[in-house]
């Protein structure tokens, strides 16, 4: 119930940002739309700790700048590899164990890997990720496990009890 309310609050904030017209009619329609969407989301069984991970948002916001910087660095590396006349690529497939506790954490980890050019998650099965790496450097960067540790930190220590339906 609490999560449904917080989803509603987030969606209403989104409405205010999208709308830009703050007349009573549109504000009221916004409330109605939010209620309808929350009801449908409840019916679809989307509102739980996975579908609305508001408990992670604070630490996730701290994680974003680091991730963006990693993306920029990886982009420059891979762009340099591509524009060389003779591409120095060494594609490999490696398997990694994500140390996150929940599937949500694994998904954040997998998508962070894919967002970073040079590495693409091609499989995720019970916490074991198959990663296709374009260059040796990209693969080594992942094996060092820095990103894994940071995503685990995003998930937080007290979050191991799995999801409970709303």
């Amino acid at each position: 119930m609490l999560q449904a309310l917080s989803l509603g609050a987030v969606l209403y904030g989104l409405w205010l940002l999208l709308s830009g017209h703050y007349q009573p009619l549109l504000l009221g329609l916004g409330v109605a739309s939010t209620v309808v969407v929350v009801l449908i989301a409840r019916r679809m069984d989307l509102i739980d700790r996975e579908g609305h991970p508001v408990h992670l948002s604070g630490r996730f916001l701290l994680y974003i700048p680091w991730l963006l910087w990693e993306i920029v660095k990886a982009n420059i590396d891979i762009a340099r590899v591509i524009v060389r006349p003779k591409m120095a690529i060494g594609p490999t497939v490696l398997r990694l164990k994500g140390t996150q506790k929940s599937e949500l954490g694994h998904v954040i980890y997998a998508n962070s890997i894919t967002l970073t050019p040079g590495t693409v998650t091609i499989g995720l099965e019970e916490g074991v990720l198959s990663v296709h790496a374009l260059t040796r450097e990209a693969a080594e960067g992942l094996i060092s496990g820095d990103m894994d540790r940071r995503v685990t930190a995003v998930e937080g220590a007290a979050d191991g009890r799995g999801e409970h339906g709303a």
Binding site: W15, L18, V37, A41
Partner: peptide, 11 residues
Amino acid sequence: LIPPIMLFALY
């Protein structure tokens, strides 16, 4: 993503 998409539709 589904709830924001539905909200966007209503917007």
